[in-house]
Design a binder for these strands. Structure first.
Lengths: 133, 133
DNA sequence: TCATTGTGGATTATTTTTATCTTATTTATC
DNA sequence: GATAAATAAGATAAAAATAATCCACAATGA
């Protein structure tokens, strides 16, 4: 029922990138040192963020990572979903899964409602908002 | 970010008990067969529910399990917390954990808000409500 | 006394998560 | 073109969490 450590790494990484002057590339090594995240693991995590179009990467010397769009257009739900896949409180609410009883199942309905409420709040503030406060 | 299978077992068990005529004891074996849950694992799960005062157990022949209080006074948050411990979206929000930055950390604040919203919905309907619909 | 049921603890198996390592590929710079 | 710095990709290992099983024990109703 918790976000993974990898999601937390991803969030800290995205905040670090959001603080960088716009367009500036930060290397995985630099971020890993600043945020105390294992470098290789961070690279993998950055790849997930890139596949979700949250960051853009650039190879070669003076390469690195930057946000793919302005920090006011990225929220926690985006980041967690990029790392963990679609957010679902139970398997029966995951995209591919189709439980025959889903529509009538009261448990499913309640979990779905809780999930929606959570998602709404995870989408409330952008990275930019979080840096302001 | 999902509830565990054990929590799901616990929810199904509690619904089964809520359907039983009040005061009736159901054996772990009976529930495990009806709900297709491994018997020994279910017994452990029932123990967790008993420790949380959600069910009462009785040994001996014709022993079994029943709800510890009326079904309209038990909700999904109770059950999940009984099995998984206090619900926390991130370690930094768990009871024992104290992060020095917690108060000012914008991530923590947002996760806490999402967690509260989710909990509110998990507490909305009781077992009795769920059986009605 | 005996069969039935939960208790408790140990152990194993499986899955998920986290971390590491190695070899490629890209690319700026000299 | 050579070189060095960076990401890409995939294999593997290590650790942790979850799920399942097993067994000896204690309670209790018949």
């Amino acid at each position: 029922m918790q976000i993974t450590r990898q999601s937390e790494y991803a969030i800290r990484t995205m905040l670090e990138l959001a603080q960088a002057t716009s367009g500036e590339l930060l290397s995985a090594r630099y971020i890993s040192e600043r945020q105390d995240i294992p470098e290789d693991f961070l690279k993998k995590t950055v790849k997930l963020l890139a596949m979700a179009d949250l960051v853009v990467t650039q190879r070669g010397p003076s390469g690195g990572v930057r946000l793919a769009r302005p920090a006011d257009q990225i929220n926690l739900a985006d980041i967690i979903a990029a790392v963990e896949g679609p957010i679902a409180l139970n398997q029966c609410l995951s995209p591919g899964y189709d439980c025959p009883n889903q529509l009538t199942c009261p448990v499913s309905r309640n979990l779905a409602r809780a999930q929606q409420a959570m998602l709404k709040e995870l989408r409330r503030e952008s990275l930019a908002d979080m840096l302001k406060h």
